[in-house]
Design a protein around this nucleic acid. Structure first.
Ligand code: MN
Ligand code: MN
Ligand code: ZN
Ligand code: ZN
Lengths: 134, 134
DNA sequence: CTTGGATTTGATAGTAATTATCCCGATTAT
DNA sequence: ATAATCGGGATAATTACTATCAAATCCAAG
């Protein structure tokens, strides 16, 4: 385990914002929201803090969204529903499945697994529904 | 199904490079390699072509690597071993697992699923092994 | 063959996420 | 107290990707 990080007002603010947050926000969203309450907060600090929290395994960095990295304060194993239209991400429980067998591993040491279901959220299904099936 | 795309020398070159390629290359790598053989090839054309191939479901665009999008000519269901150090991606067979139950779906319409195992490839395990457990 | 419309290419400019730099102030160790 | 380390903020730099658009190419019809 890495050595415990020092607590600072900025880090506390970011952690407070992330705590219980289910939206899987991007660095930009984190900055925008936290900056409202703590206007002294800088963008660089958001990235620095996320980096520190990552190393502590206090957040997951998700690469589900090809456009921007998304952050997840929930670090117990769980899976994700990702909407390919609006890019919303929803947690679902981890649907345990059999891990790859020994010789499939090709010598890899597995640290964690991610299961993502890509699809359309209810809202975007409705949006697409209007105006034909294009 | 989308209407079939027109074949052009550029597209053929890119498809030829991708065919059987197991390295899950980035757009940059595709450009660099194909450009060696076909110097008239432009970067924009690589992106254009990948876009066309995506729509035809002839390549998958993977967002496993937070730094760059990776492309996969293999479009049957299969899972991935991703090395967190060198970012190499290896195919493994799809280890069928039970899909989320009805009420977990929260109204989502699922289009496809991705399973990724993050870990260390044999080479990077060795690299880390030297010089302590840092 | 010629013409006209649609598609594709490739050069380049623009956008936006992330990283690097650098200096200052706060904290900690000696 | 002094020096060393660490964190914060401003901002520059990098880089993956997208948008634009004119020129080239393809295709079908006349
Ligand atoms: Mn989550
Ligand atoms: Mn693959
Ligand atoms: Zn949606
Ligand atoms: Zn590796």
């Amino acid at each position: 385990m890495e050595k415990k990080i020092k607590m600072t007002p900025q880090r506390a603010a970011i952690m407070e914002y992330l705590d219980g947050n289910m939206s899987h926000p991007s660095a930009d969203e984190i900055y925008t929201e936290v900056h409202k309450m703590y206007p002294m907060m800088s963008f660089a600090t958001v990235y620095n803090t996320l980096d520190a929290l990552k190393k502590q395994n206090m957040v997951w960095e998700l690469s589900v969204d090809g456009d921007r990295r998304r952050y997840d304060p929930r670090t117990e194993p769980h899976d994700h529903l990702v909407c390919v239209d609006c890019r919303s991400i929803k947690d679902i429980g981890h649907n345990g499945h059999k891990c790859p067998s020994g010789d499939e591993l090709k010598g890899y040491m597995i640290l964690r697994e991610h299961v993502e279901y890509f699809g359309l959220c209810p809202k975007c299904q409705r949006k697409r529904g209007m105006g034909g099936d294009g």
